[in-house]
């Protein structure tokens, strides 16, 4: 089987697995609340639920669409299904996938890159599930013996360091693009009241546009 055919088959199977599981998960996530209302007879008025829905959509609604679109080039097809089901995208999925691509020297867009990033994300999904499940079992006990500064470090600074590390790794390869990738959101974030979704979209597509300009002018090479 040649690479092109295999890649086509890969994409087809990926959609067949990812699409139904993500849609099903959207539904099964309602099971606990439906059971709660039925068993304890505590159905809230529909209007209250709709109000809450509208309120949460005002904060996150734009992100439901903007995040999958903005992350797509970094995550790929399978990576998008896996990551938007399992969450922790910026602090876990993308860093793991891009490190795995680096280590195995895989070229984006190839079948090898798809396989490598998929497996790296799968590995990280299991680690996260082990983490949350063990938090249930031994969480409070572990937390009570950990020194406060370690707890602070992990909750306040771990993500910052991982974001910095992943950015640094890309920045070394494309320093000209990195300058804009960081400058655009830093400036946008100073504008009061600008919604997160707007900042993400302008940053990602602004950076892409600049990268395209540099690429066609030969300022950067692949």
């Amino acid at each position: 089987m040649n690479e092109n055919e295999a890649l086509k088959q890969w994409k087809k199977t990926s959609i067949m697995i990812g699409s139904p599981t993500n849609i099903l998960a959207a539904a099964t996530a309602f099971l606990p609340v439906l059971w709660l209302c039925t068993q304890y007879n505590c159905w809230p008025p529909v209007s209250t639920v709709l109000t809450a829905w509208a309120m949460i959509a005002a904060s996150f609604g734009a992100l439901w669409f903007c995040e999958p679109i903005s992350y797509y080039a970094s995550l790929g097809l399978t990576g998008t299904y896996l990551s938007f089901f399992a969450g922790n995208i910026g602090n876990m999925r993308v860093p793991c996938a891009s490190l795995a691509l680096d280590v195995t020297k895989s070229v984006p867009g190839t079948l090898q890159a798809e396989i490598v990033s998929t497996l790296a994300i799968c590995g990280s999904v299991f680690t996260n599930l082990i983490g949350t499940t063990s938090a249930v079992i031994v969480g409070s006990a572990v937390l009570s013996v950990l020194p406060q500064f370690i707890v602070d470090g992990l909750t306040v600074y771990a993500s910052s360091a991982i974001f910095g590390a992943t950015f640094g790794n890309f920045a070394v390869k494309y320093p000209q693009i990195a300058v804009f990738g960081l400058a655009i959101p830093v400036i946008l974030k100073m504008v009061p009241g600008l919604p997160a979704a707007v900042v993400i979209v302008i940053t990602v597509f602004g950076t892409l546009l600049i990268a395209r300009m540099f690429y066609t002018k030969g300022i950067i090479k692949a």
Binding site: T166, G181, L182, T207, I210
Partner: peptide, 13 residues
């Protein structure tokens, strides 16, 4: 790479 730089630029900001 540019997409990742944009995203992580945003997260770092």
């Amino acid at each position: 790479a540019a997409c990742s730089l944009g995203i992580f630029g945003y997260l770092n900001a």
